[in-house]
């Protein structure tokens, strides 16, 4: 399916690494013009080194900065079609090990930052419609270990998604979220390598017996961003190798 996003203008936050990098690369390859946003200039440079020239612009900025939406508006070359709210932080601990400040930090980045950009997104899409894809997590739905603040923040993203889909469907703005399982990114690679329990839960006991790759999530983001999903809104698409169905020890077949 060549050049599925030809002529579309997209924003991808957290584009400097991992899932955001894979989404930016795929969207550029599919013909979109992408505004790649990340607070890490080096990561952005790495991402954009993988994209054809003329298909993107970069914006160094932090989603916790209330001025970011204005900076994004100025950097867009035309009407916005697609917003991928991907920037976020992960990990964390049990609730006893989570301070108020830890919780605030997770919410400031994963929820408040995303909320602000989603509000900007609907304002920019009001005339022509568009597609917003929020990166939630399978942790929004499943009680996952040692992630009190993270799981709560992703639950907020999933319900904000459904809420916005209800309000903005009538003017042609679709809002969906993705529920990745454990994806191997620069942020998670060390944890997967160093923490045996993580490998047990997310690989040995997971139905497909592997963690996901950023490309797995990028493919699903492309589906939700494109007109292929024109009749889908308010949904959370799990990209988790079946992990949400429970843990199952290996058995021979």
């Amino acid at each position: 399916m060549a050049a599925e996003l030809n002529g579309k203008i997209a924003i991808v936050t957290g584009a400097g690494s991992g899932i955001g990098q894979a989404i930016t690369r795929l969207f550029c390859a599919e013909g979109a013009w992408v505004l790649a946003v990340d607070r890490d200039a080096k990561g952005l440079a790495e991402t954009l080194g993988q994209c054809p020239p003329g298909q993107f612009s970069e914006l160094v900025g932090d989603v916790t900065d209330a001025a970011l939406p204005d900076a994004i508006r100025k950097a867009l070359p035309g009407p916005l079609d697609i917003l991928i709210n991907n920037a976020g932080v992960g990990a964390g601990g049990m609730i006893e090990a989570t301070s108020d400040d830890d919780l605030r930090r997770f919410f400031e980045i994963n929820v408040v930052g995303l909320f602000r950009l989603a509000r900007m997104g609907v304002e920019l899409m009001k005339k022509r419609g568009g597609s917003i894809v929020n990166l939630a997590s399978i942790f929004a739905e499943i009680g996952a270990t040692s992630s009190a603040a993270y799981s709560a923040s992703k639950g907020a993203v999933a319900s904000l998604t459904r809420q916005m889909a209800t309000d903005y469907g009538p003017i042609g703005i679709r809002v969906n979220s993705l529920g990745p399982g454990l994806i191997e990114t620069p942020l998670t690679r060390d944890r997967i390598r160093d923490q045996a329990w993580r490998r047990t839960i997310f690989i040995d006991q997971a139905p497909l017996r592997r963690v996901g790759q950023p490309e797995d999530v990028a493919n699903a983001a492309l589906f939700l961003a494109s007109d292929r999903s024109a009749f889908i809104t308010g949904e959370l698409l799990r990209v988790d190798g079946g992990w949400a169905m429970g843990r199952y020890p290996r058995e021979t077949i």
Binding site: G169, R238, D240
Partner: peptide, 15 residues
């Protein structure tokens, strides 16, 4: 492209 998706029930219902 959907290689990491299994056991999913995807609603296609226009919201």
């Amino acid at each position: 492209e959907a290689d990491f998706i299994t056991g999913q029930i995807l609603l296609v219902d226009g919201g």
